[in-house]
Design a protein around this nucleic acid. Structure first.
Lengths: 336, 336
DNA sequence: TTGTAAGCGTTATCAT
DNA sequence: ATGATAACGCTTACAA
């Protein structure tokens, strides 16, 4: 059996309250006794039982993190930030993987509440209404990553998707591209998705380029999916000179398809990604993409949670982190 | 304040023990009362407090998972398996990221013990002696992934690294390669690393090919590192016709270097990876590699833990999962 | 079948 | 400055 505060108290010849006090520095203890207790603790290798502590303090030192796919490049790096900063504040991470299913999300939200987590970082592909409803009545601090909703006052952290998309489209236009496809997310209900489309549209409009709706396709973030989309461009003979995919993975799918069909990237077609995940730099041709500060997104999110836990006023509900256009080898001037 | 077992008992007009019994089905309860209690539970939305439960049962329903890098392709997929099977058995995952640092590993091991986790899945780059020492005296069930040690009787799950390496080398030899470089792990103290080297060596020896030690290099799993190693091969003018890298990432680093220096893969040099992570299939040229059942490795590991928790005899201490040689486009016949 | 009460390992309130 | 003791929410002998 492991040693408890009682054992320590007995061996030190003091009461358990005194032991508790030296552990937590919660009240003054005479130096003599403190030393004695400290020594016993050292000898016995006593460590306070966090479960008992949680029970009385009603604090678990646990933060739940709900993600749609642990193994995603994108999410892995965000998790790094969450984990590291969390641990810095003595919070542990309870990890939940949902595969994006609403049912799982709801289940885990309940489970985490049961586990007394003090806060929840929520990532999801699609922020569905049912989820929002549940979020509205949960009493635990929640922070959203890369998603937000006007229906509810939940803090979120992301980049400026509108501006990023606008920047990227403009970059392409500046390089002479006029026929620019957009492989956008199919999560139409999400604001971020609309933002990306708006950015794209605005850039085209400002440059007097009409939008060809056939070139605006909905992708599901899967490589195979964008592969098919591009294949279809080829089949329909509407292959543009540039393809703006809203994820690196989809960009790679697009390039693979182009390569497989004998096209050269970027000589024949320029392709861009989004996120700047690891593959963006090691894939060949390396991807022109939008860098998102993934680690920081995670770090900021959990900081917000911790602030809320400690009832520190969170100034900005919606944190926008800076993005950056990274130009690599997958884009070039439009072919003549 | 959230509703407790007391509230339910009072509202139902029964004792808390009765409520506890219907929740846990631990002892017979008359149907009439059971219904009543169930109804109150439903009405009030009561859920048992797992912290209180943990305290008395000395069970936390938590399994600690220690990994060196959450964002690694390799580990992400293993985590999927761990998470999914764990949740299936109502266990939650407490995630700890160590960056491979021994100090962090030790710290987290202690922390997890304090948190009363019921089992620990441990992944590490290098299984250092200090860690083994600590593992020896921890009373919590531990399972190792892709590592094992003769110094201690800890269960582990992995593939047969010797055989896999042997298979791969043989495959290369069969395609006419005689000068085959090995970019092996620099974690020399690990058995798996030795195994890989032994497999490579045996295949060469069996085919009467002498080992050129200059072609056996230690890589640190980083892309940049294998890039440099290959760059050095070129500089020293000892570029082999095949490079067997013991991770996909290192294989990609090698290929990138080759490509950057005007070599063709696989026409000039064949390159193989190890693991079959996602990039292996989308990178171009797609990688010939060793498929490891990553999800299953995680799944089996956590099943072993759960068995140990429940004191079910674990038959085989060392589980070897099947591997598979996946032939893609990064390898071909040796140039004439 | 049901209720009473002890106990899990802490913190916190109140005396002393 | 220190010590009893109640309380946190639950499970589980033991009694009835």
């Amino acid at each position: 059996m492991s040693v408890t505060i009682k054992d320590v108290a007995k061996k030190a010849g003091v009461s358990i309250s005194t032991v508790s006090r030296v552990i937590n520095n919660s009240k003054p203890v005479s130096n003599e006794i403190r030393q004695k207790v400290l020594q016993i603790i050292e000898e016995t290798g006593y460590t306070p039982n966090p479960v008992a502590r949680s029970l009385v303090m009603k604090k678990s030192q646990l933060i739940g993190v709900i993600v749609p796919d642990i193994s995603s490049f994108f999410i892995g790096e965000i998790l790094n930030g969450i984990e590291e900063i969390g641990k810095m504040y003595a919070y542990d991470i309870l990890l939940c993987n949902t595969y994006g299913s609403l049912e799982q999300e709801l289940r885990y939200l309940k489970l985490l509440k049961g586990k007394q987590v003090e806060g929840i970082v929520l990532m999801t592909w699609e922020l569905q209404d049912k989820l929002i409803e549940y979020l509205a009545e949960i009493e635990i601090p929640v922070v959203l990553i890369n998603r937000n909703t006007s229906k509810l006052d939940i803090p979120s952290v992301s980049i400026d998707n509108f501006q990023a998309s606008y920047d990227m489209t403009n970059y392409l236009i500046k390089h002479g591209h006029k026929r620019i496809a957009l492989i956008r997310s199919n999560l139409d209900s999400n604001a971020f998705c609309q933002d990306q489309y708006r950015g794209y549209k605005k850039a085209l409009e400002e440059n007097g380029i009409p939008i060809d709706e056939r070139l605006v396709q909905f992708g599901n973030f899967k490589l195979e999916n964008s592969y098919e989309i591009v294949k279809n461009f080829i089949k329909e003979d509407i292959l543009p000179t540039a393809i703006f995919a809203t994820s690196d993975t989809m960009a790679i799918g697009a390039i693979n398809c182009l390569l497989d069909h004998g096209y050269k990237v970027p000589e024949d077609v320029s392709v861009t990604g989004f996120h700047d995940t690891k593959p963006a730099s090691f894939y060949r041709p390396s991807l022109t993409t939008i860098r998102q500060p993934l680690y920081d997104i995670g770090a900021v999110a959990i900081r917000m949670i911790i602030k809320k836990i400690n009832h520190i006023e969170v100034h900005e509900k919606i944190v926008i982190l800076p993005h950056e256009l990274i130009v690599r080898k997958s884009t070039g001037p439009a072919p003549a």
